[in-house]
Amino acid sequence: MTDVTQTRSAAADWIAWGSAATGDALRGEGYPFQCMDAGIHAVAPGMKVAGPAYTVRTYPGATWALGRAIEQASAGDVLVVDAGGRPDVIIMGELMSMRAQQRGIAGVVVDGAVRDIADIDALGFPMFARYVCPRSGTHDKVGQWQTPIACGRVVVNPGDWIVADESGVTAVPADVVEPVARATAQVKAKEAAIARHLKAGCDLGTACEKAAASLHTE
Rank of each mutant, 00 (worst) to 15 (best):
R99N: 08
G67K: 13
G51Y: 03
Q101C: 02
H41Y: 14
G84W: 06
I70T: 07
Q34S: 09
C35R: 15
D116L: 06
P52G: 03
A75S: 12
D88Y: 15
G93E: 03
V43R: 12
V81M: 05
L26S: 01
I90V: 14
A113V: 10
T58R: 14
V110C: 06
P60W: 05
F33S: 15
Q101L: 10
D24C: 10
E29N: 11
A113Y: 01
G104L: 00
A25L: 05
G30T: 03
Y54I: 06
A50Y: 08
M98T: 13
G104Q: 08
P45V: 01
A113W: 02
R99H: 11
P45T: 02
L79I: 10
T55S: 06
Y31R: 06
Q102A: 00
I91T: 12
S74I: 04
A25W: 12
A100Y: 00
V109L: 04
I40L: 02
A69F: 13
A38L: 11
V110K: 01
M36Q: 13
W64K: 13
I117Q: 04
P52C: 02
D77M: 07
I91F: 01
L95W: 14
D24E: 15
T22E: 02
V109S: 00
A20G: 13
E94A: 15
A38P: 05
M96Y: 14
W64L: 13
Y31W: 14
A38N: 12
R115Y: 06
D24K: 14
A83W: 10
A100E: 01
E71C: 07
A69R: 11
T22L: 09
V49T: 04
R57H: 11
G39T: 11
D37F: 10
G67I: 04
A69I: 03
A53T: 08
V114Y: 04
P32I: 05
G84C: 07
Q34R: 15
A62I: 00
M36A: 14
P32C: 05
M92W: 12
I90K: 06
Y31C: 01
I70E: 01
A73K: 12
V80C: 07
M92K: 02
V114G: 00
G107N: 01
G107T: 10
G76W: 07
A20D: 14
G39Y: 12
T55H: 08
P87D: 09
M98Q: 11
Q34F: 01
A38E: 13
M92L: 14
V89P: 00
M96G: 12
G67S: 08
D37P: 03
